[in-house]
Amino acid sequence: MSQGPRSRLIGAAIELVREKGVEGTGLAELLERGCTARRSLYQHFPGGKHELIEASTLAAGRFIESGIRGAEGATVAGSVADFLDASIANATATDFRLGCPVGAAALAPADAAIVIGAAGTTFASWSAALAEHLVREGHAPDAAASLAGFVVSSYEGALLRARAARSTEPLEQAKQHLLPLLTAPDRR
């Protein structure tokens, strides 16, 4: 089934923001990559580029969150290891050109408050989903919430560092140090 203009624009925004960030993503390029006319942009996103990038940030976030929530049979440590391995593979396959669209949204300029807000909402939803898994694995709720937030922060920081250094080492370090934390419940 072919995608409509709204879906194509969201997909184009995710791709371009991963590569160029919010400020580097222009309307003409969004329309071209999304194979969409300008009128479709304003029909689906009356607020323009920032509204589109807000929607694309939330969509990318829901996709990742569905993976977190869908990993019911897996351990959190196993899921995080798989996610980091996929990020390492993606970084090398794309020659470190692509970052996280949610991380890029968090770095949007101050006049893009709805985009920054969407990133904050997404990071919180990822943390909540991870915390739920950690609680099911025996972690105390407060410790699980804190650890989940730390995992999200560690991943995002490692991805930024990997892209800047053009090296997978930061992602490998995150994996090395996060996995032991995720396997040992803290019952405080």
Score class of each variant (00 low, 15 high):
145 A>M: 08
91 A>K: 05
32 E>G: 01
89 A>R: 15
161 R>T: 07
32 E>I: 01
8 R>Y: 07
150 F>L: 15
51 E>L: 02
89 A>F: 01
105 A>E: 10
166 R>A: 13
47 G>F: 00
95 D>R: 15
165 A>I: 00
31 L>A: 01
184 A>F: 01
188 R>G: 14
136 R>P: 02
83 F>T: 13
33 R>D: 00
30 L>A: 00
187 R>C: 13
162 A>R: 07
159 L>I: 08
174 A>G: 07
169 E>N: 04
24 G>N: 14
142 D>W: 05
167 S>F: 04
129 A>W: 05
99 G>F: 06
108 A>H: 10
38 R>N: 03
162 A>I: 04
18 R>H: 06
11 G>K: 09
56 S>N: 12
20 K>C: 10
94 T>C: 08
113 A>G: 01
83 F>A: 14
89 A>W: 00
98 L>H: 11
2 S>Q: 13
52 L>F: 04
35 C>R: 15
61 G>D: 12
91 A>I: 05
167 S>W: 04
136 R>S: 14
184 A>Q: 10
70 G>R: 11
6 R>V: 03
5 P>N: 07
93 A>H: 01
158 A>V: 02
26 G>Q: 08
110 A>H: 13
75 T>P: 09
75 T>D: 11
142 D>A: 11
15 E>T: 12
139 H>V: 03
49 K>E: 01
127 S>N: 08
20 K>S: 13
5 P>T: 07
99 G>E: 13
44 H>E: 12
14 I>H: 10
169 E>V: 10
79 S>K: 05
48 G>E: 02
137 E>F: 05
49 K>T: 06
101 P>F: 10
115 V>W: 05
136 R>A: 15
153 S>L: 13
151 V>G: 00
136 R>G: 10
97 R>V: 07
84 L>H: 03
154 S>R: 09
162 A>V: 07
164 A>Q: 13
146 S>W: 08
159 L>S: 11
36 T>H: 02
37 A>F: 02
185 P>W: 00
9 L>C: 03
25 T>R: 00
179 L>V: 01
42 Y>F: 15
105 A>S: 14
80 V>H: 02
152 V>E: 04
18 R>C: 14
182 L>S: 00
53 I>Q: 06
174 A>R: 03
123 F>A: 11
99 G>P: 06
54 E>R: 15
176 Q>V: 04
167 S>Y: 02
144 A>Y: 06
65 E>A: 15
151 V>T: 07
